[in-house]
Nucleic acid binder design. Structure first.
Lengths: 107, 107
DNA sequence: TTGCTATTTCCACCATCCTCGAAATAGAAT
DNA sequence: ATTCTATTTCGAGGATGGTGGAAATAGCAA
């Protein structure tokens, strides 16, 4: 995971509509949800939803699986875990309080 | 934490430059880093950095503290924890696989 | 083939973002 | 008051994003 990739994923989640899509899928769990059902729940144009789904899929945050005539969408928990890990990674590695702050130099 | 607020924070982290700023602050730990030092490390125009810092501060992801002539910036870990919590919150609440998926209905 | 449903692609408009240099401001020191 | 450093605000450019309607596609059914 590099900065560019992580930023792409965060940007994908950084739009209210897409975040709502993603959370709806998280709530749906492993069962996932068809695109049409997502559209009903969220109430946006199909084209708009498709556009947003595409971005979520490109960044790896959502997966799709064909089931006869409908496409089932699922949140990709592994990608999320990886992203969260990146955010808190290497915390305090460069900690070196030159001035007198509240102690805790190299704890 | 609501969707709008979370989206704002995610969008703030969704720009490569801002994400780099944030991660640099995370690495710096509790000591924080002056704006000027951030600029040196990242190598962008001061005005651009100021712009990005402003957005990170508005969303609560970064805090600033005046120290004589310089402003010390710090990553706000509490905000990050809250954001991460929001992302995985209520996972699988709506799980109800109608079709025959790989079991795990209401585990 | 024809028709049907589910979903995506195309297109356009409007809004917002990213970036930088130049100018303005805040605060301390002389 | 003047000067100096650190940082922010202003203004503008080009680029990208968000949205929905219309049209195109994918796959199945008859």
């Amino acid at each position: 995971m590099n900065v560019e990739e992580a930023a792409k994923q965060l940007e994908a989640l950084g739009n209210p509509t897409r975040l709502q899509v993603y959370r709806t899928l998280v709530r749906a769990g492993d069962c996932g949800l068809p695109v049409g059902r997502l559209q009903e729940k969220i109430g946006i144009a199909a084209s708009t939803l498709s556009h947003h789904l595409h971005r979520l899929i490109l960044t790896g945050l959502v997966t799709q699986e064909r089931q006869v005539t409908t496409l089932i969408c699922r949140a990709n928990y592994l990608a999320m875990n990886s992203l969260v890990g990146f955010l808190v990674d290497e915390c305090c590695v460069d900690a070196s309080c030159a001035a007198d702050q509240n102690g805790v130099a190299a704890a």
